[in-house]
Design a protein around this nucleic acid. Structure first.
Lengths: 345, 345
DNA sequence: GCGGTTGATGATATCGCTAACATGCTTTCT
DNA sequence: AGAAAGCATGTTAGCGATATCATCAACCGC
């Protein structure tokens, strides 16, 4: 097979070829493929036979140029390696499948600069809407989006100045909820493990929520360990726990920025023969599968990642179709966060 | 902001607008954006100023129609939720970034029918190449691909009848390697945990490799537990282990189709107070992060997921650019698999 | 000083499809 | 019966970019 080679270019059949083959005009072929009921059954059959025989595949680049609808939705997540975000991506894809749109997926590695570049390169594809993670973006990114004139959904956060639509939750409050829940269970000496930089906005917000909640409870909130560049890994969670216990050996409960680091912390305890939760309790965030399966199972916060994606895609679809004024349409959807209490804390 | 609403359609500037603004022809604008050195500095500056002022963003749908290069690469994986495959996806994206192509990513949920549908809808976007997972596809999918006349890379496997290019490894042999390694460590009574159906081709191949290796070693190979629809989860690994020990309580080592199920099996042992590896040893496959972090750490097989993605994208880029006859170009790249010995087995 | 090369730019003709309107022809209504 | 409406299809004109060839200076070497 000579494919893609120079001179090996195959002349793919076009709609005109199909039309000729079926003895109709290209317009009828186009209709037969997109709105079959606009074409009589006999003609449609002839066209489909021609399509089959020639192995014709519609060219959507051409189609969307003419119809001004690309059928693309762009989505940008921090990382596709993180199952929380890939759950969101799944939610988006599943919702899109219903509306027949295709997903352009990109990841930023938690960098707003990379996000800006991604937004720019995706806008060149003329997506009909775009889904972002978080509310922090470069000024240029905001400008690009505003110029693009397409609906935008920010997710996983409740930005103070949203660009357009929002589907998310408050990371501060979700963390506050976790802290208060654990406080009610009797814990008093809280420690927090997170990443080193502010790059992970949601991580920073969770830390802020941790501090604020303890402050309101009148408890000390200085046991903060920063370890590793986000996304903070299991391994780094383990190292951070070691550091935590070294600095504050009497810490009662350690809350981690995510379940991955929480799991790392848990295994570090196991290596050191520290009992969880008897000696130290551990809680995470995100309700990853690992939290439900670890031994002991890890207390966490479920933020409904899949649902965020599904809702974001639905909102976008409605906005694209001009249903912003429909009853029940809300530009800002606050999703539910639940603390999942398990054995680890 | 009125976006996407009916009648709210913003008239985005086109290249002609930029051209007029800068007092040049559209062709010069096109050149300034794609091959800046073909345009004098003064003109280029004027054009860039116009681009900035108007907030112009290139329309690639239009561009690719005329240049017959879409800049798209399609990639299809079984699941983006599985970090092995999302590592491969990362490898692809990273390699593509160098060549400036954009990724169209889709997932099949381990169904060849869904794969066929995905291939069809992606081919409508006229990708310049396509990366698949595994060597099993529907006949129609094969036909679609062959008609498309673009390079194809099959990954994560060494298909007997490859469509075109291959970047992968033998799942049978990789599993055989693991079995022999554990055999050398003295284990004799082997059990295997995998999914129920043949949908996960790679899972089936690993099971076949398990059976074959034991057969060659003259050992019994009937301790096979099938549990759950692939991808088999941590939880299912746990349940499968319970079932294994019930049927064959004297099993010495349990090999799981992936590290996720291995981890589930491990935690089930911990719940039951069964010591790993003293009472039962456990090994997984894929070398996920969790294998390196669990306590005890899980023996696994590293298959270089990221590298598979990177190589696949590179191969594709070379094939697209007609470098098939370059020295060093191999249509079939066999990647390295290494057993990573840890405490669990 | 002149044929030839190089460099910067422009004019024109598509690329493959679909929107919008036009054309016949049949059906329906009053 | 004649006007109005409906159905199946065709015609025409782009969508927004780029390939290709053409143009016109400026420059180069001998």
């Amino acid at each position: 097979m000579d494919k893609g080679g120079p001179g090996g270019e195959i002349q793919r059949p076009t709609m005109a070829d199909v039309a000729q083959h079926a003895g109709v005009s290209t317009m009828t072929v186009s209709r037969a493929l997109k709105n079959p009921d606009l074409v009589s059954e006999a003609t449609r059959d002839r066209i489909m036979a021609a399509v089959d025989e020639l192995g014709y595949v519609l060219d959507q680049s051409a189609g969307s140029l003419s119809s001004r609808r690309t059928g693309f939705i762009a989505a940008i997540v921090p990382s596709i390696n993180n199952s929380n975000f890939s759950d969101t991506a799944r939610g988006i894809t599943d919702a899109l499948e219903e509306s027949g749109e295709q997903l352009l997926l990109g990841y930023t590695d938690y960098s707003v600069e990379k996000e800006e570049r991604l937004i720019e390169s995706m806008l060149r594809r003329r997506p009909e809407g775009i889904i972002l993670t978080g509310g922090r973006h470069t000024d240029r990114a905001r400008k690009l989006l505003s110029n693009a004139g397409i609906p935008v959904v920010e997710t996983w956060d409740l930005p103070a100045n949203p660009i357009d639509l929002v589907v998310g939750f408050s990371n501060e409050e979700a963390m506050g909820l976790l802290v208060r829940t654990l406080h009610q269970k009797g814990y008093r000496r809280f420690g927090y493990i997170g990443g080193t930089t502010e790059r992970d906005t949601r991580g920073s917000q969770r830390r802020a929520g941790f501090v604020e909640a303890l402050h309101q409870l009148g408890l000390p909130h200085d046991r903060l360990i920063s370890f590793g560049v986000p996304p903070i890994s299991m391994q780094q969670g383990a190292e951070a726990l070691a550091s935590m216990l070294e600095q504050w050996p009497d810490t009662e409960v350690v809350i981690c920025v995510s379940d991955l680091s929480a799991f790392g912390a848990l295994t570090e305890c196991q290596r050191r023969g520290i009992r969880v939760p008897e000696d130290v309790a551990i809680a995470g965030f995100g309700n990853y599968e690992i939290a439900a399966c670890a031994h002991p199972r890890i207390t966490s916060v479920d933020v409904g990642c899949y649902e965020i994606g599904r809702l974001a895609a639905q909102q976008l679809a409605q906005a694209i179709n001009g249903r912003r004024s429909d009853p029940g349409f809300r530009a800002r959807i606050v999703t539910d966060c639940k603390v999942v209490q398990r054995e680890s804390a």
